[in-house]
């Protein structure tokens, strides 16, 4: 079954005719993702190596049956592209674009949540369900099929951990990069909830980093609501005490946000935490072995 993207995904790439959109859109198709359309205003009627391009997402939905969108649109137009996809009836929007203004996402978030749309990103590597579909920029060749769910705030660190798992012969059900922006479409908890409900996922690895308290909140969710084991890696143990956002920032979450504080909070909720990517992969291998 996997989560978010799978064999039923019919993808429209918003910004397919741009250099990044084209490179990764075609890579996604080469992987086996069903890329049914591209959207670039003013370029309707063209095609990118056989993928039809439309002027609007509404046409991509009505003409090509798109149900999932991948957003590669430049930052200042990205949130508009998200609204367009949502209003065209797209159910899953994955935005790769970085540098999206935070206030725009602040207003868009309650809108698309209210419509029941799943959004991932922005500023994220996308979602990969090995053997089924790759939507985004995750280098699929380093992952294999399996039963481990992987959710991460960081792109390249996701690759590193996935790679370590693959080296140990462990595969993934789905890899989700939620992105590191102030407001992202889906949180750790949103993704953990779906992994819990997914019959192809046996165990979940949550990859976090210093700052904020999303990992701590997720830990509470894991303890109360999840039956599947969750392991974690947190980056930033050697980071010097970071710049806090004035005085107000530090007291909002009530968490110091350091790697050590996160590790302790997670362990208190029964989540094992590795201190290097290699160590967490080994811990996963032990747990997966014990379950097999």
């Amino acid at each position: 079954m996997a989560i978010i993207v799978d064999n039923d995904t019919r993808l429209v790439v918003q910004g397919l005719t741009g250099s990044e959109g084209r490179f990764h859109g075609l890579r996604n198709r080469a992987y086996g993702t069903n890329v049914v359309a591209g959207v670039t205003p003013g370029k309707g009627g063209q095609d990118v190596e056989g993928i039809p391009v439309f002027d609007t997402v509404a046409e991509a939905v009505s003409e090509a049956g798109a149900n999932t969108s991948l957003v590669f649109v430049p930052a200042r137009f990205a949130v508009d592209a998200v609204y367009e996809a949502v209003d065209a009836g797209i159910g899953t929007v994955i935005a790769i674009t970085e540098h999206v203004p935070a206030h725009e996402m602040l207003r868009a978030y309650p809108y698309f949540r209210g419509k029941g749309v799943t959004m991932i990103g922005p500023n994220c590597p996308g979602v990969l369900s090995p053997g089924k579909a790759n939507v985004g920029i995750i280098p699929a060749e380093i992952f294999s099929e399996g039963s481990i769910g992987l959710v991460s705030r960081s792109g390249t660190l996701t690759y590193q951990i996935g790679h370590e798992l693959t080296q140990l012969g462990l595969g993934n059900s789905t890899i989700v990069g939620i992105g590191g922006d102030p407001v992202v479409g889906s949180s750790f908890i949103d993704v953990l909830e779906r992994f819990e409900a997914d019959d192809e996922t046996d165990l979940v690895v949550m990859v976090g980093e210093i700052g904020g308290d999303e990992e701590e909140k997720a830990a509470g969710f894991v303890q109360e609501r999840m039956s599947k084991p969750v392991l974690s890696y947190i980056a930033g143990f050697s980071a010097p005490p970071g710049k806090t956002m004035g005085h107000a920032g530090a007291i909002i979450s009530g968490s110091s946000g350091t790697a050590q504080a996160k590790k302790e909070a997670l362990e208190a909720c029964g989540i094992e935490v590795g201190t290097t990517p290699t160590e967490v992969a080994q811990m996963v291998a032990e747990r997966a072995g014990a379950r097999a």
Partner: peptide, 17 residues
């Protein structure tokens, strides 16, 4: 020197480790 904040931070951790 790493690419991406997460991996760069993790690299610092592993060097210290």
């Amino acid at each position: 020197c790493g690419n991406g904040a997460g991996l760069s931070m993790s690299t610092v951790d592993v060097v210290a480790h």
